[in-house]
Nucleic acid binder design. Structure first.
Ligand SMILES: NC(=O)c1ccc[n+]([C@@H]2O[C@H](COP(=O)([O-])OP(=O)(O)OC[C@H]3O[C@@H](n4cnc5c(N)ncnc54)[C@H](O)[C@@H]3O)[C@@H](O)[C@H]2O)c1
Ligand SMILES: NC(=O)c1ccc[n+]([C@@H]2O[C@H](COP(=O)([O-])OP(=O)(O)OC[C@H]3O[C@@H](n4cnc5c(N)ncnc54)[C@H](O)[C@@H]3O)[C@@H](O)[C@H]2O)c1
Lengths: 223, 223
DNA sequence: AGTACCGTGTGAACCTTTTCACAAGCGACC
DNA sequence: GGTCGCTTGTGAAAAGGTTCACACGGTACT
């Protein structure tokens, strides 16, 4: 079987949401075309994505909503609980903890760590912030599947290393930096600055090309 | 000139960060190879990305750090201030407001809106939360360039519509849903659930293919 | 001035992902 | 049972993005 593209996986998440909604609305069947419409993509894309994993539809009819949702749920691994360690109980970290959406999809934050003594010991939601030095010890008990990095930029790589050492197989990183992890550890980075800058670029495209100082090559600046 | 790929723009953001760091470390020149190494990509990719915008390097030498940083700064439109309206003063919204990183890159949140009467009037950072019904009126004064949607899922599309009506040309969306906006408005979505689910998928790949009930086609589920 | 070395900029090759287009399956209706 | 309309699943084509590989330009050193 050929490797699945990251973009396909991300769309599966979207299909899953749509299916949840359609199910709630009472829809029993949905065609690739209508599914695609709700996501603003083509129906061929939907069918191709699903075809990598099997044949879930019925010709002339479409997909059974409940069935397809369960299939995608299984494909994405959402049919189990994932134990998640959160490192960094700052702005982002506490926002994530207060969010109930993740637990609903099976992502259960079972421990929070920080290194700031003023935060350690405080309660955040149902959890008490622990000192990050206890990460290895707690991991031995709880066997985290994933780690979330919500620390300051400067600590991100060392926290990643600690999480890897603690045995996580996946890391979600909020620090705006490239992290290096072993090949067997999956890494995803949420970089809001990149998104904003991408917007900034898009909005700047309206303006004309760079006005250049005449008589000056493009290379300059060096002495 | 050919359209610039979104992936190229995102990498430019990363190059920009690396250049900031290298500059802080006192480096004057950097080769595409070393720049690539710090991002875990190939040097050809770096050169290709930059080549879409001009010739910024010197053969045999590399790129002048300060000069290249300024070029990218200009390309990404970070050489000006962007006025940003934030809608939704909940967990994510307040986390964003407490973050100083954005203002440093020129993204200035100049107004915050919510519809919850218990939040309206409260101070968050330097700003006072206003009722979302005032969005149009405030936009007339402040001329927002971009909007950030940090509201609940159910409100996201109507808030997007309101922001578009208020004249923003870019939207950063945190609600996990596909939003529809006119072609002249740039939209980027930060969907943390998708990221987590992508991790979940990656971690699930270890397990074998789906065990199927024998004697049952792939299509089933319908009556 | 000549030679050795280095690194950019870029066409071409390669690889990946998306879109096209259609045969084949399925239900409905006569 | 036959025909019609609808929709899937999928090879093949197209589009898009990345990597290769090298000519060319530039520095350094003799
Ligand atoms: N808040 C935002 O809106 C926002 C937006 C974009 C990016 N980010 C990024 O997200 C990350 C977190 O941002 P924030 O605003 O929550 O920052 P914050 O300063 O509020 O929180 C960071 C927390 O991490 C803790 N920490 C630092 N080093 C640690 C370590 N080695 N081990 C354990 N804990 C450690 C700190 O004590 C602090 O509590 C930063 O990297 C930031 O660049 C934040
Ligand atoms: N908090 C997280 O960690 C997290 C993670 C992933 C996704 N999200 C998404 O981000 C969004 C915000 O999450 P949150 O945790 O900050 O939620 P929240 O409930 O804390 O905040 C949402 C805020 O939006 C306001 N709001 C709702 N409808 C509005 C409207 N029409 N106009 C103006 N304001 C309105 C609410 O009054 C509330 O203050 C949600 O869509 C959520 O799915 C949040």
């Amino acid at each position: 079987m050929t490797r699945i593209a990251e973009s396909t996986v991300r769309r599966l998440s979207h299909y899953y949401r749509v299916l949840e909604e359609v199910e709630a609305e009472g829809g029993r069947l949905i065609s690739s075309h209508r599914l695609a419409q709700r996501e603003g993509i083509t129906s061929a894309q939907v069918r191709k994505d699903l075809s990598y994993f099997g044949s879930f539809g019925r010709r002339g009819l479409g997909y059974n909503v409940v069935h397809l949702r369960h299939e995608i749920r299984w494909i994405l691994g959402l049919d189990r609980r994932w134990r998640v360690a959160l490192v960094g109980a700052g702005n982002i970290g506490t926002a994530l903890l207060s969010y109930r959406g993740f637990a609903q999809q099976g992502f259960e934050v079972t421990a929070v760590f920080d290194r700031d003594p003023s935060r350690v010991g405080q309660r955040v939601g149902d959890l008490v912030v622990q000192d990050v030095s206890r990460l290895a010890a707690v991991a031995a008990e709880q066997a985290f599947d994933m780690g979330v990095i919500a620390t300051t930029l400067a600590s991100a790589q060392q926290v990643a290393d600690a999480l890897v050492a603690a045995g996580v197989r996946g890391i979600l990183n909020f620090a705006p930096r490239k992290l290096f992890v072993p090949a067997h550890v999956a890494l995803r980075t949420v970089d809001m600055a990149v998104e904003l800058e991408s917007l900034s670029f898009a909005l700047s495209q309206a303006r004309g090309p760079r006005r250049r100082v005449p008589g000056r090559g493009g290379s300059g600046g060096g002495r």
